[in-house]
Simulated scan of single mutants.
Amino acid sequence: MTGGLSRADFHSQNLERAREEALRLFNAKAGLQGAWLNWVGAQIYSFRPAAYASMVRRELQSLQEKSET
């Protein structure tokens, strides 16, 4: 973790931003259609630190699951 933050502190400080990022990625799906999966993978891969990228990935998964029900 960066700056000596505990995992819980990092999570609480970045959760809202991760949710906003996941929503932005999710909302791009309609416009990108078939190209979305490769694009979103590249976006998530570029996020740092890796713990933040994982948070965005989890939030995006949650949005996808909700949209399927």
Rank of each mutant, 00 (worst) to 15 (best):
E20I: 07
A53M: 07
A42R: 09
G41F: 01
L25T: 04
R58Y: 08
E68T: 05
A18V: 09
E59K: 03
L37I: 10
A8S: 14
S54H: 14
Q64R: 15
A42C: 03
R19V: 13
D9M: 12
G31F: 04
W36S: 00
F10L: 08
A53E: 10
R57P: 00
A28Q: 15
P49Q: 04
Q43M: 04
G31Q: 04
N38I: 04
I44Y: 02
I44K: 02
R58Q: 10
R48H: 06
P49A: 01
L15P: 06
L37T: 13
R48E: 07
A28D: 12
Q13F: 12
K29F: 03
Q33W: 04
A8L: 15
S67H: 14
L32K: 05
E65N: 10
A22T: 07
E68F: 08
N27T: 09
A22V: 05
R57K: 12
W36V: 00
M55L: 07
P49F: 05
R58V: 07
W39K: 01
G41T: 02
G31C: 01
A51N: 05
Q43L: 01
A22Y: 08
R57H: 10
P49D: 02
L15Q: 15
A51M: 04
Q64I: 14
E59D: 00
V40I: 03
N38Y: 06
A28F: 10
A30L: 08
K29N: 02
E21C: 07
Q61I: 08
L60K: 07
S12A: 12
H11E: 13
T69F: 13
K66D: 07
Q33K: 11
L23E: 14
A30K: 11
R17A: 13
R57W: 14
S62W: 11
W36H: 01
T69Y: 12
Q43E: 10
A50M: 08
Q64S: 11
L32E: 01
V56W: 09
N14W: 12
A8C: 08
L37A: 05
G41D: 01
E68V: 03
M55P: 04
K66F: 08
T69A: 09
N14K: 10
R57A: 09
R19I: 12
A22D: 04
S12Q: 15
Y52P: 01
G31T: 04
L63K: 01
S46P: 01
S12L: 14
A50K: 13
L32H: 05
